[in-house]
Every structure is written in structure tokens, then in C-alpha cells.
């Protein structure tokens, strides 16, 4: 099945990318989806460079294809990052998240994703000029992460823990790190007849009419029971997490500040 899907996706990618490619650098990993996914997520006229300062950390292999940790460390990025888009090239739905940081500089973001098979992973960060800086990694995997039923749903008492949110605030030399864990099946909608049921919207709010610290759109590649890490270069006075899933469930929790 995977091979067939790949071939199909590759052929589609070739057909769709003919003639529209901007002057994009070559992909050091040679993924067949490089140009296609740039066009799909960043646009056909996107300006793109490879940049190690988008420090993407992903293990070389997925020990658990349903929970592959990803950390993007932007502490070496020379300016406050603009839009951030992450995708997993060979997943059925490659998009993982799109994030828009507010005025507080985002220095680190982490969450777990699923992989369907060995694939490249990308994080693109837009600078002030509109240029996308891309960090890439390759993760080897036995696969099945997207089409495996969530462990939450197969656990008979998942409803008891559904929506349970744990969190912590961790002081950094400069700035602040928040870590949050949400019990949610995050069903991708790709398993048998289990409908999609996942958190699609994430916001970190300062309140008091202040701009958002971060807003994030999550897609089906995100892993179940998500564990988020957000770090900001300056300490926000307060932070509140707000989440909404595609069934309309909303969650809101204070993360710290003004304690």
C-alpha cells in the first residue's frame, strides 16, 4: 500500500510541479516531495533557503512511529521568527503545524508527530523579508503511525482522562519555557471507520488585550496525547493555553505568570 501511495504521490508531484518551480535550492535529502510540498505549503513563488539556524532535532529513527519527537530550536535564528510551517514529506497528510508567533520571540517549539514510513521532515521559518529558512531531517521508520488506531481510543477508560491537561512553567536564563500535555486521542481519520477527532487550534494568550504569544494550526500528523513545549526569549507576564478540537470541545488553562 505504502509503495503504491508513494508512486501515486510522486507522479502527482511531478505533474503539478512542472513549470511553476521558483529557483529553489536542491534538497540535500533528494525527497521526491521537496518541490511539491514547498509549493503546497509555502506557495509557488516562495523564496527558500536552507538554514542550519532552524535547528531541527528529530531522532534518526522512529522507535515508535506514532510518537516521534520533534524539537525546533530557533535560539540561533538572527531575528524574531515570523510564520513557521512544519511538514512530514511522505505522510498521507504531510502538514504538521503552522504557527504564528506574536511579538515575543519564540525560541523553541516541540511536539511529537506520527510517521507512516521513512521520510524527510521540514520546518520552514519566514524572516522579515519574507524569505523561508528551512531546516530538514530524515527519520527512518517501520511505519504505520498514521494508520494505527490511537492507544487512547482502545483504552476503555479514555473518556475519564479526556481533556486532562498537565503543565509546567520553567524559567530559563533569559525567557520562559512552557510545557503542556493534553489527553486527547488526536485521531487522524485515516484508520478504518474511526472519524477524525483532533485538536486543530492552539493559542497561547497573554490576556489583558495583549497580542497572542502564539497561534498554531495542527494537522493529522500530530501525535495523540500531545506534549507541547514552547519557549520565549522574553518572559511573558502571563500565559493562558486555549485549545479547540474539530468536535468543538474547547479547553482553557492558566500556564503561569502573575502567580
Amino acid at each position: 500500500m505504502n509503495i503504491l501511495i508513494n508512486i501515486l504521490v510522486f507522479v502527482l508531484g511531478c505533474l503539478l510541479s512542472v513549470g511553476v518551480r521558483a529557483a529553489w535550492p536542491d534538497d540535500p535529502f533528494g525527497s521526491p516531495m521537496w518541490a511539491y510540498n514547498i509549493e503546497r505549503y509555502l506557495g509557488s513563488d516562495a523564496r527558500v533557503v536552507h538554514d542550519d539556524r532552524v535547528n531541527l532535532r528529530v531522532p534518526e529513527f522512529a522507535e515508535d512511529s506514532a510518537q516521534v519527537p520533534l524539537t525546533v530550536d530557533l535560539s540561533a535564528f538572527p531575528e524574531a521568527p515570523g510564520q513557521i510551517v512544519a511538514w512530514v514529506d511522505l505522510n498521507p497528510v504531510p502538514h504538521l503545524f503552522s504557527a504564528s508567533p506574536g511579538p515575543q520571540p519564540l525560541t523553541l517549539l516541540a511536539l511529537n508527530f506520527r510517521v507512516q514510513q521513512a521520510t524527510t521532515v521540514r520546518v520552514a521559518v519566514q524572516d522579515r523579508e519574507g524569505v523561508w529558512h528551512i531546516g530538514s531531517r530524515y527519520v527512518d521508520a517501520a511505519g504505520g503511525g498514521c494508520t494505527a488506531p490511537s492507544q487512547t481510543m482502545s483504552n476503555p477508560d479514555w473518556e475519564r482522562h479526556f481533556g486532562t491537561i498537565r503543565g509546567g512553567a520553567f524559567s530559563r536564563a533569559e525567557g520562559m519555557r512552557y510545557k503542556v500535555n493534553v489527553m486527547h486521542p488526536m485521531d487522524s481519520g485515516m484508520v478504518g471507520n474511526i472519524p477524525a477527532f483532533f485538536i486543530g487550534e492552539v493559542e497561547l494568550r497573554q490576556g489583558n488585550g495583549q497580542p497572542l504569544l502564539l497561534s498554531m494550526a495542527l494537522s493529522e500528523s500530530a501525535a495523540e496525547n500531545p506534549m507541547f513545549v514552547f519557549e520565549f526569549g522574553q518572559r511573558p507576564p502571563r500565559a493562558t493555553l486555549w485549545l479547540r478540537d474539530n468536535n468543538g470541545n474547547q479547553f482553557e488553562r492558566r500556564l503561569g505568570g502573575d502567580l
Binding site: 522507535e63 515508535d64 486532562t164 498537565r166 503543565g167 509546567g168 506534549m227 488553562r253
Partner: peptide, 15 residues
């Protein structure tokens, strides 16, 4: 991958 999630949860507080 196997064991850190439990350590992480124990280090967080129920919100």
C-alpha cells in the same frame, strides 16, 4: 521514547 513520557508527566502539575 519508552520511558521519558512518564517522567515528563510526573514533573508537570494538573492544571
Amino acid at each position: 521514547t519508552h520511558l521519558y513520557p512518564d517522567y515528563e508527566k510526573r514533573a508537570l502539575s494538573l492544571l
